[in-house]
Amino acid sequence: MASFIVLTEEQQRLQREAPPEAVLRCLTSELGCLTRQDGSASLSQGDTTVTAVAYGPAEVRMARERIDRATVEVVYKPKVGLPRPVDRKKENIIRNTLESAIMGSAHPRSAISVIIQETEDLGSNLACCINAACLALLDAAVGLNFMVAAVASAVMEDGKIVTDPEKKVEEKAVAVMTFVFESVDHKLVSVLTYGKFTQEQYKVCRDLCRQTAQSVFAFYRESLEKKLLKTV
């Protein structure tokens, strides 16, 4: 039987005028879920699920070899269909983001590959992909300068800001922004925006996402602790 919550006028008004909160949907992950890879992670943010695997430092093709640092390769596979330019752009962003995080100079002339498989896209897909990729790199124990956390936020028609939006919210939003922060100085690593917004809205979203990113970093720490402390 369904249950109802009755809100008074006063409570409704308070709800509408409440400041935006730095909330994330429920995060669950499974590290080392696949056995043949150097590192693997399956991450769910709410219902959006992404599986990422990492290899490296491994052999690199001569054409892509760099003499001073590792070559970072990212492949993004959508759930259905062949990769299209939209997916190439995602790969480009994820690769550039991970390249600044990975300590490439420690492994010149080698390749660090990350393969990301979209399992379910129900909002904030790009953010979930970047977070899963970071977890996969942590699982593979690749040397990193810092960890990266991505958080998406949506600006609705009435000006309300929602962090880590679901797909239904994203579709109705006026603008969607994905921010990626690093864990040392909390500076901005990447940003991707869709839709129109004012400078003020940009700043509010950015600060809210930065706050939310701290929860993601805490989640990484917790996940790795669970994995490492089970070894004796």
């Binding site: 150097d38 124990a141 690749v142 040397g143 994995k227 490492l228």
Partner: peptide, 25 residues
């Protein structure tokens, strides 16, 4: 720190991070 792991120590003054890795360097 560049890798996730447990901080370990050995006499006389060696510190290292014990991480779980499959790939050999």
């Amino acid at each position: 720190i560049s890798k996730p792991g447990i901080l370990r120590f050995r006499e006389p003054g060696i510190y290292w991070i014990d991480c779980h890795q499959k790939r050999y360097v």
